[in-house]
Write a protein that binds this DNA or RNA. Structure first.
Length: 759
DNA sequence: CTATCGTTTT
């Protein structure tokens, strides 16, 4: 045999490249043939008989709990000669292959000492490798088995196929299928179900479906494999359809069916079917296992019925970490983070899924600092995170602009060999973009081997808001060129690239092509982008027309865009009209009053300004307090205007004083137009220089060495005066200052801003 | 052989 040499080589790091090895296997599978004469069905029966006998007699191995103990028993067997007994051989290998603490390397040593292993032993070895997620080892052993003249049986393939990864399934699925047909094992339902799973894994749903449809003896396991397959690819409606069909064909569901269906109900928020499943259990038509109860708890939680979920939870006799995590998730998804945390704290044990779930709860509640805190606690508890955890933490970093922590996480992923899947890559791009680190966002993007819609959308949007509109559009062209279909979110990034770069004509064209080329009906956000695009470019009339011709009711974001444009282009009359519309929609929206009063101030319409201030006081309308974040040495510091709560407050304020003097000497004149009227000129200045972003920048200046970039995240839009001051700071102190505001980035360098004072 | 919890873009 041509591949005997490699087969003898101790093989196979399961973590080795999943690309090279499967191709190797693929070739071998296509070359492999079963051409031995010394295999016969009598051997199979003989060995099956041995297996049956062995299960009925007692063995000291039955109570064996560790490899150490096993080795003792093994040496005993060698001493008294039992080691030559095929029954004992099978038992000892089975321990190594099937037991939790079993050691496959030891199994392999024993196996290599058996001159004529039985088919049962071959199957056991294959199963052992499969259970330990070493599909390559399992496949190679299968090939070795063929080579040595053994044919597979109904037990061989189910365990072999079970270990497949997506890549292997894609590369070798058909090859193994061919083998199965060749050995005449394709009519076995066990083998068929395993094949169905392989095709689902490799995304070849149609083949799986055909296999299922034309199969003559479908049993409930094939149905279950189909249903769980559709669940895995998130086609829950299809799962439900199959369930209904299954009932029609009078196939009795098993507990596995119900678990899958309950899970589908959770995702579909199908309380009706979910309740039926629960009723089926209550009627004792099926035994309620822990997994089934967990699925039902999740089903109620998914349907938003935490009351019912909790009731079931409390009545459960046994709960595991999944039960608890499901409850934590349930509370998180119904906006009850604190309650989720209380459950989380009560958990008897927490695994990395539980920690990630809690992190996501804080993310959902916009409590990003607490999300980061969870990761620190997780580290302290010595729980190893996985790629899901990394994505959550990176999301928190992105929201907080915490570049240091984000970068630390990137290194952590490398060092700890955490799987860098497409989600992680996308989250890294987003994190770097949202921290204003375009260079690193580009780098991650370049280095990704697979890119999906989210990857492209993330980089396009990241470049757009950081002031690289043209580059974003170039990438959009490349995206189309590589046959990735953009969605409505991608187009938001694309249109905002046009807006931030002032590319009006390109924007108009893309808006049309969105519909004609990709069949995406623009939603209210796209109209918002267009209004923004036209408005910022000073085409206020066209922006108005755009709103008038919208097929849906404009929302506050659309009106807000136009109002913002009125401010930039000082069109008070239009602004008043817009503000009226806006306040009709959201009478309590403080931002509208602020925008309008700023506009009145800019245009010296003091009477109107007083009026609107009075309305605000009378109605008790508060504006959202401005808040700025800055990360220093991995800690996120938060400032609001006039904040004195920071431990280094004194230093910060003396730095501000010095900054104010330096800046004035350099020619900076404060822009007090946006400050309340009722205070004197000097107080106005004080109010200005206590703005949260100035506090954050001052803190950044005193806390970092020369030349270090200062990065600030602000929850609102940057005010005109802070923008002016930041330009001076960047020149005077030779510091790059990057401020992310609500809508875009301002990269201040050498006295200029990337937004070209247009925002 | 088939099954339950956590991940990304406006």
């Amino acid at each position: 045999m041509q591949f005997s040499i490699s087969l003898k080589t101790p093989f196979l790091n399961p973590f080795s490249s999943t690309i090279i090895v499967p191709i190797f296997i693929k070739k071998m599978i296509s070359m492999a043939s079963f051409n031995s004469n010394h295999f016969s069905s009598t051997i199979t029966h003989h060995h099956l008989a041995i297996e049956n006998n062995s299960s009925s007699s007692k063995s000291p191995l039955d109570s064996c709990k560790s490899m150490k103990h096993l080795k003792q028993l093994h040496s005993q067997m060698i001493r008294n000669g039992d080691i030559h007994d095929p029954i004992e051989q099978t038992r000892i290998i089975r321990f190594c292959c099937n037991h939790e603490v079993g050691d496959m390397d030891y199994a392999r040593i024993l196996f290599d000492q058996i001159p004529e292993p039985s088919l049962v032993i071959w199957n056991t070895m294959i199963q052992g490798y499969s259970q330990r997620k070493s599909p390559q080892s399992a496949a190679f052993l299968y090939l070795e088995m063929l080579e040595r003249g053994f044919g597979p049986d109904n037990y061989t393939f189910p365990s072999l196929l079970k270990a497949f990864t997506r890549e292997i399934a894609l590369d070798c699925g058909k090859g193994f299928h061919a083998q199965i047909v060749k050995f005449g094992l394709d009519s076995n339902v066990f083998v068929q179900s395993a094949l169905i799973c392989v095709y689902f894994l490799s995304g070849q749903i149609n083949i799986a479906r055909r296999l299922f449809d034309k199969s003559s003896k479908r049993d409930v396991v094939s149905w279950n494999a189909m249903i769980s397959g559709y669940n895995k690819i998130h086609c829950y409606e299809e799962s439900q359809k199959l369930f209904i069909e299954m009932e029609k064909e009078k196939v009795q569901p098993t507990v596995v069916t119900l678990v899958s269906i309950a899970s589908a109900c959770a995702k579909l928020k199908d309380l009706q079917t979910g309740t039926q499943v629960h009723q089926y259990v209550k009627d004792c038509r099926i035994e309620a296992t822990l997994k089934l109860e967990n699925a039902l708890v999740d089903m109620y939680a998914g349907c938003g019925r935490m009351d019912l979920s909790l009731e079931l939870f409390e009545n459960m006799k046994l709960r595991d970490v999944i039960t608890w995590t499901t409850m934590v998730n349930g509370f998180n998804n119904t906006g009850q983070v604190n309650r989720a945390r209380a459950f989380f704290n009560q958990m008897p044990e927490r695994d990395y899924v539980s920690w990630t779930a809690m992190t996501n709860g804080y993310l959902k509640a916009n409590r990003f600092k607490e999300a980061l805190e969870i990761f620190r606690e997780m580290q302290a508890a010595n729980i190893r995170p996985d790629q899901f955890t990394m994505v959550s933490i990176l999301t928190a970093c992105a929201q907080l602009g915490a570049l240091e922590v984000g970068e630390w996480i990137r290194v952590y992923i490398e060092k700890n060999k955490i799987k860098k899947d497409i989600f992680v890559g996308n989250a890294l791009i987003d994190m770097f973009s949202k921290c204003g680190d375009v260079e690193n966002a580009r780098k991650i993007f370049r280095e990704m081997t697979r890119r999906d819609k989210f990857t492209w959308t993330a980089i396009i949007h990241g470049l757009a808001v950081n002031g690289h509109g043209q580059e974003a559009l170039d990438l959009f062209c490349r995206m189309i060129g590589s046959s990735i279909t953009p969605d409505e979110v991608t187009y938001i990034g694309v249109l905002s690239a046009c807006t931030h770069a002032g590319l009006v004509e390109e924007g108009r064209e893309l808006f049309v092509r969105m519909i004609s080329d990709h069949g995406i009906e623009p939603n209210v956000s796209h109209y918002g982008c267009m209004v923004d695009l036209l408005g910022r470019a000073g085409k206020l009339r066209e922006a108005q027309e755009m709103i008038a011709n919208m097929p849906m009711k404009p929302n506050s974001i659309v009106w807000g865009s136009l109002l913002g444009a009125c401010r930039v282009h000082k069109d008070v009359d239009l602004a008043e009209m817009v503000a009226r519309n806006l306040l009709e929609l959201e009478p309590e929206n403080g931002a509208v009053y602020v925008l309008l009063s700023n506009l009145y101030a800019t245009c010296n319409r003091w009477d109107d300004l007083r009026k609107i201030r009075k309305i605000m006081t009378d109605k008790g309308i508060k504006k959202t307090p401005g808040c700025s974040l800055i990360e220093m040495n991995g800690v996120v510091h938060e400032f609001v205007a006039g904040d004195r709560s920071h431990s280094q407050s004194n230093e910060i304020y003396s730095k501000l004083d010095k900054m104010s003097r330096d800046l004035k000497l350099a020619g900076y004149v404060p822009d007090t137009s946006n400050v309340s009227l009722d205070v004197g000129e000097e107080e106005k200045e004080t109010a200005l220089y206590q703005h949260s972003e100035k506090l954050a920048i001052a803190f950044g200046l005193i806390s970092s060495g020369p030349g270090i970039t200062i990065r600030v995240v602000k929850n609102l839009r940057m005010c005109v005066d802070c923008h002016r001051a930041a330009k001076f700071i960047s020149r005077l102190y030779e510091r790059e200052v990057i401020v992310r505001d609500r809508l875009r980035f301002h990269h201040f360098r050498h006295g200029l801003c990337s937004c070209k004072d247009f925002w």
